[in-house]
């Protein structure tokens, strides 16, 4: 039964693409460590420096009224790592495959269809994002920053985050015309990274700004990871999961629609 499912074209097609990327990854796995290096640096910088300046973070609903700054930031960095790990793959790397390497021209001459390629790339990006989160998560745990058994939810959470941003990245990359355009992507991603409660809680903002921030996919991603890792479980976590699922599915639909238009000669 499972074997038959695995062999069906709907699964085997995307799986073949994942396999391709895995073959390349065998030569370049160390890039994963490089990718984890950056969030670890942030974490150290927070732990050694900024944490002492900030002290404790007040007012996180339900749980501990004041949480240490590093404990507050670590989950946000985890969510961001899952996001970046997945999105770098479907933006930079896929742009290169679309415009420079023309990887898909030969693949689409085989029985694989555009949707197999799209699903395969998203599945791969999802694996990458999750791998980054797992390695960085191990570092976070080693620093003693996970405080609750609920923290195991970080794993499925990061899968969901990676899926949502992998799909979003795939949709975005179909609009990109040159490397210059990535500056525009940065112009959206950087403020999201800075303002989505990565470094300080929502309470700092005035209420209208709070509402805007709550609409950001990264904010929801951080919620999905931060609450369980601080041992706070509430409806917000479920809502965040739902948000990311819908956001990912819509992005995926858009990406498929766009790819059908750009890849067919």
């Amino acid at each position: 039964m499972l074997r038959a499912l695995w062999r069906s074209p709907a699964v085997a097609g995307p799986a073949a693409l994942v396999e391709r990327n895995l073959v390349i990854y065998r030569h370049t796995w160390y890039l994963l460590l490089a990718e984890v290096f950056e969030p670890v640096l942030y974490l150290l910088s927070m732990g050694v420096g900024i944490g002492a300046l900030v002290g404790h973070v007040p007012g996180l609903g339900g749980g501990d009224p004041s949480v240490g700054y590093v404990d507050f930031v670590a989950p946000a960095l985890l969510a961001t790592a899952a996001m970046n790990g997945a999105m770098n793959e479907t933006t930079f790397n896929i742009y290169g495959k679309l415009k420079m390497l023309h990887t898909y021209d030969s693949i689409l001459a085989t029985p694989l269809r555009i949707r197999d390629v799209a699903l395969g790339e998203v599945a791969w990006a999802l694996l990458r994002g999750t791998a980054v989160t797992v390695v960085f998560g191990a570092a976070v745990a080693a620093f003693g920053l996970l405080h609750s058994p609920w923290a195991v939810l970080i794993l499925p959470g990061s899968l969901l985050i990676a899926f949502a941003f992998a799909a979003a990245g795939l949709a975005v990359v179909t609009y990109i015309r040159s490397w210059q355009d990535f500056q525009l992507v940065q112009l959206v991603m950087l403020p999201m990274f800075l303002f989505a409660t990565t470094f300080y809680p929502l309470g700092v903002y005035a209420r209208p700004v709070q509402i805007a921030v709550e609409c950001l996919p990264l904010y929801q991603s951080i919620e999905l990871v931060r609450e369980p890792s601080l041992g706070v479980m509430n409806a917000g976590v479920g809502l965040a999961a739902l948000y990311l699922l819908v956001f990912g599915a819509l992005s995926m639909a858009l990406a498929l629609h766009r790819l059908e238009r750009t890849l067919v000669p």
């Binding site: 085997a12 073949a16 396999e19 391709r20 073959v23 390497l101 693949i107 029985p111």
Partner: peptide, 26 residues
């Protein structure tokens, strides 16, 4: 299919090109 421009997978070695391509055919 042998297209006009070689659309080989430049991220793979010679043998990997054959192995991976075969997988696309299941």
């Amino acid at each position: 299919s042998v297209p006009q421009d070689d659309t080989l997978d430049t991220e793979l070695t010679v043998r990997e090109n054959l192995l991976v391509y075969g997988r696309y055919f299941g």
